[in-house]
Design a protein around this nucleic acid. Structure first.
Lengths: 206, 206
DNA sequence: TTTTCTTTCACCTATTTTGGTGAAACTATG
DNA sequence: CATAGTTTCACCAAAATAGGTGAAAGAAAA
């Protein structure tokens, strides 16, 4: 049996879940407090700690917005995600056509803050300074919603996936590589451009 | 983490465990009460129910001697590795003393060339140029055998883990960071030095 | 059916946890 | 350094849980 949480704790948990869903980012303690009508962050922290003790979420010490939800619904296999590795993408193809699923890997859900939906193999070293190397598998949370500054998986002109940091100022969308010797990609509004998802994590084999 | 049990509950649990060990049979509520000096079975039942709620044992309704202890880790399918995340290491401690196992993650075996045995959390950016960032979880294949040029998890002077590239020329052992602004560590042959294992892979959450 | 166990009820006190307030200290990061 | 967040400390009231006693009702098995 899962340990019982109080209704107040359930509210806290629901708010956190909704916020992560909406923003792709966990809320701060103060934001939680605001939403629940708690004047004080330390009370919020106690709730969060209780939820952590009860196995519903994890939190990294001293790290902002580091709350991660642990368990979706089933205590058993909720922790085990099965992530398909998506191969190369040709123009306009639907994302999950079977031919392109090479293999799949299992990873604990609790590793990630954002629930990943699939893996993409990185080609090239354009994000080396973000610690994303050639051959790495990037876990992607499939969503078309991204904000300035986030690392996204995008497709430009119907080409293959590219993993880049999104710069979004006014009408100018720019994909920033993060390594010396690589140039930013400016996206022309008339061009095909799709944000496939957000960077959710990374796996690297030996 | 597992939910905390009280010391009284721990005693109950210990007695049950000992009795199952000795007799191959779980004790009755009355026997537990006798051993713990509780005059009444209903109090014993409450303890047992608490332990059940906390996931330490199971009990079948209306069935005599039906207490069963919950085993810690159940064997998953062959492809799923369960990797414990090892916390900080103090001098000379054995590697898996329970206090330091924070949590564990499941990952497919097939991600790795070298089979990893545990995870270590990276502190600092000294291996940034290898794509190993602060906060990443490095999968370590436990072995004392390493060759020149490999990335190793090592301990110097009984300190915490450090992930570095091993340079080994003649008698000189040198641990090379891989980031500007970090200095190599030269290992004096008289010093404590242990190679705990080889870099087997890397996991990064959102 | 009797015996052996388990389960439920009512009732009790002591201790912990929950759920707060407020202020100050610490830490990560640009 | 300034700032946005996290963490800790002291303090408080209300509620839940822990840990008991005792008696009686139910269930399972020989």
């Amino acid at each position: 049996m899962t340990i019982q949480i109080t209704s107040r704790q359930a509210n806290v948990l629901a708010f956190i879940r909704a916020r992560i869903e909406r923003d792709g980012q966990a809320p701060t303690l103060e934001e939680i407090g605001e939403a629940l009508g708690i004047a004080n962050v330390s009370a919020v922290l106690k709730h969060v700690r209780s939820l952590e003790a009860k196995g519903r979420l994890t939190i990294e010490p001293n790290r902002a917005r580091s709350i991660r939800l642990v368990r979706e619904s089933d205590p058993m296999d909720a922790d085990a995600l099965e992530l398909p590795l998506i191969g190369r993408i040709a123009a306009g193809e639907p994302l999950f056509s079977e031919a392109r699923v090479d293999r799949s890997l299992r990873v604990s859900r609790s590793l990630f803050r954002l629930r990943p939906d699939y893996l993409v193999k990185v080609v090239g070293d354009s994000m080396r300074d973000e610690g994303i190397l050639d051959g790495d598998l990037v876990a992607v949370h499939a969503t078309p919603v991204a904000r300035h500054g986030q690392v996204v998986a995008a497709r430009v002109r119907g080409n293959e996936f590219t993993i880049k940091r999104l710069h979004w100022k006014g009408d100018v969308i720019r994909l920033m590589p993060n390594s010396p010797g690589f140039k930013p990609i400016d996206v022309d509004p008339t061009e095909d451009f799709a944000i496939e998802g957000l960077f959710a994590g990374l796996l690297r084999g030996s």
